[in-house]
């Protein structure tokens, strides 16, 4: 399982502009595996990205929009992508100028295969 996750994260991490790819549990926000550049704290990224996704998921359910498939957060310095299936979330932290479309496609593929 860890080897498969690591391989999946490796694929995501190779997309140009990606600084970190982390697998985390949505409910606990704990990192299960990570491929990250040295300046990224994978545990912190997992904790906050999972918390954000869980809140978004609840908000969407409360609004009657159903399940949340992917969350994209745009910031001045970069982008955060989170996709989940069940309690497993895949988190990608990328540079601002990284190809968002490419990352989103890769993330959807990865979450299906993880």
């Amino acid at each position: 399982m860890t080897a498969l996750l690591q391989e999946t994260l490796g694929v995501l991490a190779r997309v140009p502009g990606v600084r970190a790819a982390v697998a985390a549990t949505v409910s606990d926000g704990l990192a299960a595996a990570a491929v990250a550049s040295v300046e990224v704290d994978a545990d912190t990224l997992a904790a906050f990205a999972a918390a954000l996704f869980q809140r978004t998921r609840r908000a969407n359910v409360a609004a009657g929009y159903g399940d949340t498939h992917q969350l994209v957060l745009d910031a001045t310095g970069g982008r955060l992508f989170v996709a989940a299936r069940g309690d497993l979330a895949l988190v990608v932290l990328a540079e601002r100028d990284a190809g968002a479309g490419l990352i989103r496609v890769a993330l959807q593929r990865a979450v299906r295969s993880a």
């Binding site: 985390a24 409910s27 606990d28 926000g29 904790a47």
Partner: peptide
């Protein structure tokens, strides 16, 4: 409770 998570509490 579920307003937060173990990861956030640990952080």
């Amino acid at each position: 409770d579920d307003r937060t998570s173990l990861g956030v509490v640990r952080h």
